Simulated assay, not measured.
Amino acid sequence: MPKVIVSGLSVSIDGFAAGPQQSLHDPLGIRGLELHEWFFENKQNPAMTGATAISAQVDERVAQRAMDGFGSFVLGRNMFGPNRGEWGDDSWKGWWGDDPPWRAPTFILTHFPRPPIEMEGGTTFYFVTTGIFEALERAKKAAGAKNVKIGGGVSTVRQYVKAGLVDELQLSISPTFLGQGESLFPGLDFPALGFSIVERAIGAHAMHITLSKNC
């Protein structure tokens, strides 16, 4: 049965999943890129030996799983871009250029309507003004037999988890303290929401844990 999954979400030791003051210069907020070293390090320095190579393979496997097998995606407005309010001239089409990595129907939560945008590689952005439930229903229909990924940002993930709409969370705990930013955990009682840790693995640059709803 298809699932609703949060995957590849990086979190600092002190619980921040994004840095403060997101901007065009800092898409992940100030110092937010540090949370994703486990993802980018393997791309930049693939040659490793011994135990480090094994740990790097863990990070690589998690990075691949974070994007594979999804039939649609749901993103918050902040995940799509730094601009706020009305869309203006509609020139902004996301952080990712003409060929975004999603390559499936992608539903953007927003208060401001905008026509769909067809991109290269199979991505079409749909802008949903009617809330998280409507966006998820549309994403499920678009995904068919495949899973739906709640792709962030932090506020979007928190809303879906609090509403009991997420089946599985795959978190990557990065060995860094941000001190400030967007916190993931306050007010989220994962055991009370029915989650338990079902998988854990230590990578070269992060500890990866999977939380799943109890059967």
Rank of each mutant, 00 (worst) to 15 (best):
I132N: 09
L178A: 03
A104L: 02
G153V: 04
T49K: 05
G19L: 01
F16P: 02
I54T: 11
L165S: 02
G181Y: 02
L33E: 15
D98A: 09
F112N: 12
G131K: 09
V6H: 00
R84I: 15
D189E: 08
A204Y: 10
P105Q: 09
P105F: 12
L75A: 01
R158Q: 14
Q180N: 13
P100N: 05
G19T: 02
T130R: 13
M1K: 11
L184K: 08
M48N: 10
V62M: 06
T176I: 14
A18D: 12
R114C: 04
S7F: 13
T52L: 01
I30C: 00
L211S: 12
S72G: 00
P191I: 14
S55P: 00
E34R: 15
G76A: 01
L9M: 11
L109N: 01
G76V: 01
G131N: 08
D99T: 15
Q22W: 10
T110C: 02
V11M: 01
G19I: 02
E137Q: 13
V58Q: 14
H36V: 11
E120L: 11
A53M: 12
G97F: 09
P20K: 11
P116V: 02
I197E: 07
G50N: 06
N83D: 08
R200H: 13
P101C: 07
